[in-house]
Amino acid sequence: MKAPFKPLVFALGLLPVAWLAGRFWLDDLGVNPIETVNRFLGDWALRFLLIALAVTPVRQWTHWAPLARLRRMLGLYAFFYVCLHMASYIGLDLFFDWQTLWKDVLKRRYITLGMICFVLLVPLAATSTDAMVRWMGGKRWRMLHKLVYPAGCLGVVHFWMMVKADIREPLIYALVLAVLLGWRAVKAFRQNPAGVILGR
């Protein structure tokens, strides 16, 4: 069980990219291929973000310690898909029209929020190595990596705001996120009620 565990999840994480490449190869990206690619990558960025956020709760519910070893990889996969999503938006959709990109970021709130989400994830990816954890010290590192909570919220809101009328899909993501963050909040409150209320 132990040996193939991580490589297996690593391979699974590449499946969406492989699937997209296959669809491209078969010329099966639909009538609006750029939209298809961009949505697909955005979907998987959000899914991996939620999967990464689920590692700790699921590990504690199942008492299955080895799950912890997947957390970094899944978090980096989330960042990987966020980067691909950004690349497809800037490179395919806008075709490197930086002026339009800048206007979009300033004016369109869902793009502003998506961009903030990306910016929040950059330092987390940058400090994901063992050396960085040692250099920062565990406590500061954990503080920094709490940024993943607002990033998750921004990702869901970004998706929600993009939808025209049918909010059922973003609602599912929002509920999953609420469970994952709510569990943490309840746990933190139980351990240290005063700390949660006073923000310590």
């Binding site: 009538v31 609006n32 750029i34 939209e35 959709d93 806008l94 075709f95 029209d97 339009t100 206007k103 979009d104 004016k107 369109r108 709130r109 869902y110 705001m161 993009m162």
Partner: peptide, 18 residues
């Protein structure tokens, strides 16, 4: 503009650039 997106450009289905 639509409040959530620009209406300045469009993608003609079948074309790459807006």
């Amino acid at each position: 503009d639509h409040p959530r997106w620009s209406q300045a450009t469009e993608r003609r289905i079948g074309e790459f650039r807006r």
